[in-house]
C-alpha cells in the first residue's frame, strides 16, 4: 500500500454523508452506489452497500486486517439540488486521482453545503416564465401566457412558504396546485383571453414530479426495482396531490 490508511470509522461516516447527500439531491441509485464505491476505492477500502430511499447501510472492510465497520444512516429529504450532485461527482474523481484525504473531503462537503441557491425572485420569475412557455407550447396566446405566468409564480411562492412552515410535502404540493389553478381558474371564470382552459391546464405543470418519475424509470432499468417502485409511488402521490388541488379549486369556482 502506497499511503497510510485513514481510520475506517471516519471513512465510513464520510461515505454515508456523501451517499445521503446524493440520494436526497436527486441522483439515481446507480450513481449513488458508483460514487460511494469510487470514493471508497480512492481511500483504499472495499465496501458493501444497501441503498434505500430513506436509509443507507454501509459495511466497510479493511482488506488486510480483518476489521470491519458497519453503520446505518437516515436520509432526510431536502429537495432536488443538482449543484450538489455535480460537486460530489467532481469530488469523487479528485479522491480517486489526486488521493484526497478525509479532511479534504469533509472540507469540500462543507463548502458544497454552504453554496448559495439562486435568489428567490430569480427562481420565481424563471419558473413563472417556464409556465408561460408550457402555455405557448400547448397553443395559448399572449394573454393566456401572462395568466399562466402569474398563476405559476403565485403557486411556487405558496409552495415555498408552505415548505418554510414545515407542512407535509404532499400538502405543500396540494396548496400550490390549489392556488395556481384557482388564479388561472378565476381568469377562466371572468373570460380573460381566448382559450383560458389552456392557462388552467399549464398553470400546475411546474409541480409535475419529473425527477422522481424519470429517476424511477432509470432505477427500474438498472435493476434497482425496489427503489424504482418507491420513486414511482412518490411521483404518483405528488400527481394525486396536484389533482386534489385542482379538484378543490374547481369545486370552489363551480359553486
Amino acid at each position: 500500500m502506497k499511503r497510510l490508511k485513514e481510520d475506517a470509522q471516519s471513512a465510513g461516516n464520510i461515505l454515508l454523508e456523501v451517499g445521503s447527500l446524493l440520494m436526497s439531491s436527486g441522483a439515481s441509485t446507480h450513481r449513488t452506489r458508483l460514487t460511494m464505491e469510487r470514493i471508497a476505492k480512492g481511500l483504499g477500502y472495499g465496501i458493501e452497500l444497501l441503498i434505500t430511499q430513506r436509509a443507507l447501510m454501509l459495511t466497510i472492510i479493511e482488506k488486510e486486517q480483518e476489521h470491519f465497520f458497519s453503520r446505518m444512516k437516515r436520509i432526510s429529504p431536502h429537495g432536488v439540488n443538482f449543484r450538489m450532485v455535480s460537486g460530489i461527482s467532481h469530488l469523487s474523481w479528485n479522491v480517486l486521482e489526486d488521493n484526497w484525504t478525509i479532511a479534504q473531503i469533509s472540507d469540500e462537503l462543507k463548502r458544497l453545503k454552504s453554496l448559495p441557491h439562486y435568489p428567490r425572485l430569480v427562481v420565481l420569475s424563471l419558473v413563472g416564465l417556464a409556465g408561460a412557455a408550457f402555455c405557448h407550447i400547448f397553443g395559448g396566446g399572449y394573454i393566456e401566457m401572462a395568466v399562466a405566468f402569474v398563476a405559476t409564480f403565485a403557486g411556487l411562492f405558496t409552495r415555498q412558504e408552505a415548505h418554510r412552515l414545515k407542512f407535509n410535502p404532499y400538502l405543500c404540493v396540494f396548496f400550490a396546485a390549489f392556488v395556481a389553478s384557482l388564479i388561472a381558474g378565476l381568469a377562466e371564470h371572468f373570460k380573460i383571453g381566448l382559450q383560458p382552459d389552456k392557462a388552467v391546464a399549464t398553470s400546475v405543470l411546474f409541480l409535475v414530479p419529473g425527477v422522481p418519475l424519470i429517476n424511477s424509470v432509470t432505477d427500474l432499468m438498472d435493476g434497482n426495482i425496489q427503489n424504482g417502485m418507491v420513486r414511482a409511488m412518490n411521483g404518483l402521490m405528488i400527481a394525486f396531490s396536484i389533482a386534489m388541488g385542482l379538484f378543490a379549486a374547481k369545486m370552489i369556482l363551480n359553486f
Binding site: S28, V85, G210
Partner: peptide
C-alpha cells in the same frame, strides 16, 4: 464536467406529458 443527469433531466421535463395527465385527472 457535470454528470449527464444534470443536463438530461431539466431538458426532458418540457416533454413530460402534463397536459394528458391533467386531462386524465379531470
Amino acid at each position: 464536467k457535470s454528470p449527464p443527469l444534470v443536463f438530461s433531466i431539466p431538458s426532458v421535463i418540457p416533454m413530460v406529458p402534463g397536459f394528458f395527465a391533467y386531462n386524465m385527472m379531470l
